[in-house]
Design a protein around this nucleic acid. Structure first.
Length: 224
DNA sequence: GACCAGGCACATC
DNA sequence: GATGTGCATGGT
């Protein structure tokens, strides 16, 4: 069975099992961008607290966030952990938007995806995953997002060898799937859900025997 | 108390 | 290029 078919079957199996994930909540594209930084190496519940703080402070708007005192920003971001780093990262992102797009996300609409990706990666604190999350979920660009869960699932299904790099993994998906934003969004969300469940006791997947079957609904006992 | 959570930058070999 | 380390809060 070729890879494209395997991935398609995996997606439908996940979709069947988990339904619509309603992935990546956020009222505005900027809020999604902020969330992408706040959730780095941090569970979403903690990131959400920081987002709530920012909302209450009216700082879920690039110009406002960019104008906040650093100490104030650190306070608001604290629940998400790594608050010294993340506050600085948010400030750089907001400043970039203010300078690059006059403080609006809409001004980025005409900029090619590759260019946006380069500029995001040039911001210290935004790496491949965060950049791609922003491109896909905030800016609606057809970019597949790879994260730790994706890696676990793909390796566990034998689709790629352990030790594969970010770009190798991303290429696996982009080369095999139709370039549809909605598909990319939901597939990634499904992979996260699967990864959370069936690897929750063994995050590194070492020696774990379970391997959900492709193309079939996944039984609960194979999800652990 | 240990371990983990939707990474990244930097140092070192 | 690969590997190790610091960053930090909050839930289980």
């Amino acid at each position: 069975m070729d890879l494209a078919r395997k991935l398609t079957e995996l997606y439908h199996a996940l979709r069947e099992r988990f339904g619509d994930r309603h992935w990546w909540p956020g009222e505005t594209p900027f809020e999604v961008m902020v969330g992408a930084i706040l959730t780095q190496r941090t569970n979403w519940a903690n990131a959400r607290k920081a987002i709530a703080n920012l909302r209450e402070a009216g700082a879920l708007e690039p110009r406002v966030l960019a104008s906040l005192e650093l100490e104030r920003l650190r306070e608001l971001v604290r629940p998400a952990g790594y608050f010294r780093q993340k506050s600085a990262r948010l400030a750089r992102l907001a400043n970039w938007l203010v300078q690059r797009g006059e403080g609006t996300v809409e001004a980025l609409a005409a900029v090619p995806t590759a260019r946006l990706r380069e500029e995001l990666l040039a911001l210290r604190g935004i790496g491949p995953e965060t950049a791609d999350s922003i491109l896909l979920y905030a800016l609606e660009r057809p970019v597949f997002v790879v994260d730790a869960y994706t890696m676990r699932v793909v390796v566990r299904h034998g689709l790629l060898d352990p030790g594969a790099g970010y770009y190798e993994l991303r290429e696996l998906f982009t080369a095999s799937l139709p370039r549809h934003v909605a598909l990319y969004k939901d597939f990634h969300a499904q992979l996260v859900e699967l990864g959370k469940r069936f690897c929750r006791s063994r995050p590194r997947c070492e020696g774990c025997p379970a391997r959900p079957a492709l193309g079939e609904p996944i039984p609960d006992d194979e999800l652990i």
